[in-house]
Design a protein around this nucleic acid. Structure first.
Lengths: 219, 219
DNA sequence: CATTGTTTTGACCGATCGGTCAATATCATT
DNA sequence: AATGATATTGACCGATCGGTCAAAACAATG
C-alpha cells in the first residue's frame, strides 16, 4: 500500500535486504514483536511474504537482527569520556547526540522501546551484560568528576537515566509531543530549542558550568 | 497458568470486571493492542474466553476502557497549581506524584506508552484536545512564574515534557533500569533516591529554590 | 542448447486470531 | 415447583498467523 518497494530487479541482495529491514523496522516499532505480522512487512516492502522468509529465515531472526542493528548505532555514544574531560562539553554532546540519533532512527528507537516495554525478552542478557558494563564505566568517570569538584555529587546512574529518558522521549513519544504542541512534526528549530533547553536545565542542575562555545569571543 | 483467578462465585459483576481489567491491563501493557490476545487475557483472569466478551463486548471496547481508566488516574496531578504557588513545592510534588503513580500503576503506564508508540490511534483526539488544554493551562502558570522572577525563563512545555519523561522512565523502562542496576525490583529506598535526585537536578536546573522542608527547624 | 544453481512465489499447513451462538447452568421471583 | 432473566461456556466461523514446499523463473557456465 505504501511506497518504498523493492523494484529495480537489477540490484543485488544488499538492496533487497535493506528494503526488508526498513519495512520491518517500521512495522515492529509500531506494533511490537507479537503485534507485527510478516504479511504487513511484506506488503510494505513490496514483496511476497515467502520472500521475506527466504532472506531472513524467520520472524524472530529478522527481529533480533533489527535489535542488534539499533544497539550498534548507539555504540558510538559517550565513547570519548575521560576523567580529564570537561563535564559540560561531554554531557552537552551526549544530549545532542541522543537527540540526533532519535531523529535519525525514530523507528529503531521505538523498536527498542517496545522491546523494553514487553519486558526485554530478547535483550535482558544484553541489558544486564554489555550495557550494564557500559553504564558502569561511564558512571565511574562521572563519579570522578564529582570528586574533583567539577560537578555536584549525584548518583551517576540516575544522571544517565535522566538524559536517556529526556532525549528518547522526543523519538518514542513523538505522537504525544506533536499532538500537544499542535505540530505535524518537529523541525530543526524545535530540535535546537529542545537541545538548548535540556543542556541548560541538566547542566545547571548538576552544577556543571556551561561549555564556553566561544572561548575568547574573537572580535 | 498464573494466579489471580476469578473464583469465589458468590462475588458480583464488579469483582469479575475488575479481575478482567487487571488481567487485560497486564497483557495489553506487555504486548500492545495488536499483540495482545483475548485468550491470553482469559487465561490470566481464569475465565473462558467467551466470558471476557460477554462482559466487555469486544477487544477494542476493553482496550479503550483501560485507556480511559488510566487517563482518569492522571487527572488529579497538578490540579492545585496557581500563579501564587511556590514553584519549588509544586514541581517537587509533581515529580513525586508522577513517580508514585508510575509505581502504583506500572501496567497502566506501559499500556499508555505502547499506545503512544503505536502512533496513538485511540488517543490522538485526547492528546490534541483535553491533554493539550491541560498542558497549555499549566504552561501559562509556569510562564507567569518566570515573569515574576520565581524561576528561570524556560519553555514551560519542554519543562513538562522533561518531568514526564524522567519520571515515567522508571515505570515504563523498569526492565532496563533493573537490568542495569542489577536489582530484582526498585525498593522504597531506591524510589526515594530517585525522587530526591530529580527534585534536586530539575529544580536547580530551573533556577527554583528548593522548598524548605523544615521552615524553622523547631528544635 | 543443455545443465546447474539461485530467486521468486503461489499454494498450502496447522495453529490461533476476534467474535458469534446456542445450549446449558444459575438465580430470583412467583 | 414453575417461570423468566441472567451467566456461563464449548463449539464453531471466517480470517489471519508463522512457516514449508515444490514448481516455475532466472542466471551463469559448459
Amino acid at each position: 500500500m505504501t511506497a518504498e518497494t523493492a523494484d529495480q530487479d537489477n540490484v543485488g541482495r544488499d538492496h533487497i535486504e535493506r528494503c526488508i529491514l526498513r519495512a520491518a523496522e517500521q512495522v515492529f516499532s509500531q506494533y511490537g514483536y507479537r503485534g507485527a505480522s510478516l504479511q504487513a512487512i511484506a506488503d510494505k516492502a513490496g514483496l511476497p511474504k515467502a520472500n521475506i522468509l527466504y532472506y531472513m529465515g524467520s520472524k524472530q531472526a529478522l527481529y533480533v537482527r533489527l535489535l542488534n542493528r539499533m544497539m550498534s548505532r548507539w555504540n558510538a555514544v559517550l565513547e570519548d569520556i575521560t576523567p580529564e574531560s570537561d563535564p559540560g562539553r561531554v554531557l552537552s554532546e551526549f544530549i545532542r547526540t541522543k537527540i540526533v540519533l532519535g531523529q535519525r532512527y525514530p523507528e529503531g528507537s521505538k523498536l527498542f522501546a517496545a522491546e523494553i516495554l514487553a519486558g526485554a525478552p530478547f535483550l535482558n542478557k544484553y541489558l544486564s551484560g554489555e550495557l550494564r558494563d557500559w553504564v558502569a564505566s561511564r558512571a565511574a568517570v562521572i563519579r570522578q568528576w564529582s570528586n574533583q569538584g567539577k560537578m555536584d555529587d549525584l548518583d551517576p546512574h540516575l544522571l544517565i537515566f535522566l538524559i536517556w529518558s529526556a532525549t528518547q522521549h522526543y523519538a518514542e513519544y513523538s505522537a504525544q509531543v506533536t499532538g500537544i504542541l499542535g505540530k505535524e512534526a518537529l523541525d530543526e528549530a524545535d530540535l535546537e530549542s529542545i537541545c538548548q533547553f535540556l543542556e541548560q536545565v541538566i547542566l545547571k542542575g548538576c552544577g556543571v558550568p556551561r561549555p564556553d562555545a566561544s572561548p575568547a569571543t574573537p572580535r
